[in-house]
Design a protein around this nucleic acid. Structure first.
Ligand code: MN
Ligand code: MN
Ligand code: ZN
Ligand code: ZN
Lengths: 139, 139
DNA sequence: TTCTTCTTTAGAAGAATTCTAATCTATTGA
DNA sequence: TCAATAGATTAGAATTCTTCTAAAGAAGAA
């Protein structure tokens, strides 16, 4: 991590009113210095271990939620058995590889959702999530 | 339950090669004799209890999965903390009321999904799921 | 019937996530 | 610079949802 990366990540945390602790900076680096990512808590924990940063799983969860609340992450619900966190917080959609359990972005502008019927009385849209589930056919 | 309902549900189970046991018939009745439903395991268990049918939770889960495998139900993933099962197995989409945790169908023909980008190499579509998350704004 | 296969079940086990409460660290401001 | 304070981290326990185990029961075949 270069000095300027560090400063940038630190600013990102401060702007979100999160103290730039050693653990948060390590997580921010894993999350934000290699393009958009879709990651589970367990996986992020493993990566932190591999990177030589000891962080408890509780801290991983605490921070994933705090980052999400701060708008630095969003949660993508695709699998009922585990949570995925997405570093791309702009509205967009996903391909989900059912066998591998991996996500791939679909830009909002690349896919059209039209003719949403009238919303249930008294409600407003929070988000529109499209998941295109794909698999590799055994041929 | 009338005699003809019973016969109909029994046929539904037999056609799926599932023995029409007391428990399965009770579940089938709860699931299929009141229009399309979206229900969790716990809720179905409660309803069975209320209806005076003693069924273990293991049996509820066993059957929800067997029904799903047989194409009598489908699972809808909207909430990472619990699984919803849908009696409407035709392709369609959903409104999800975030506060109440309830689902409402959107007919496939009512909503347009277009311009899905080229699929990742070597994959084919398994399903396209649209979830319109709504909430009741505090005003 | 009788045999076989499937089903149900209580309770244990598993997996993901959250909680508790003690310890530690970053920030603040005298 | 250095308390004082608010916030953060952590180990391990607890919780919740779900699955597994293995024994007992019920359904279908002949
Ligand atoms: Mn869970
Ligand atoms: Mn499941
Ligand atoms: Zn994404
Ligand atoms: Zn539905």
């Amino acid at each position: 991590m270069t000095q300027s990366d560090f400063v940038e990540l630190e600013k990102k945390l401060r702007d979100a009113e999160l103290r730039p602790t050693k653990q948060r900076l390590a997580l921010a680096q894993l999350l934000y210095s290699q393009g958009n990512r879709h990651i589970t808590a367990e996986r992020l924990h493993s990566e932190a271990m591999e990177a030589g940063v000891a962080i408890s799983l509780a801290t991983i969860y605490n921070n994933l939620h705090q980052f999400t609340t701060a708008g630095l992450l969003r949660e993508v619900v695709v699998d009922s058995s585990r949570s995925y966190f997405d570093t791309n917080v702009a509205p967009h959609h996903h391909f989900f590889h059912e066998e591998q359990g991996t996500l791939e972005d679909i830009a909002k502008s690349d896919l059209t959702v039209a003719n949403i019927p009238p919303l249930p009385e008294g409600t407003e849209i929070s988000s529109v999530d499209v998941i295109v589930r794909v698999n590799s056919p055994r041929r």
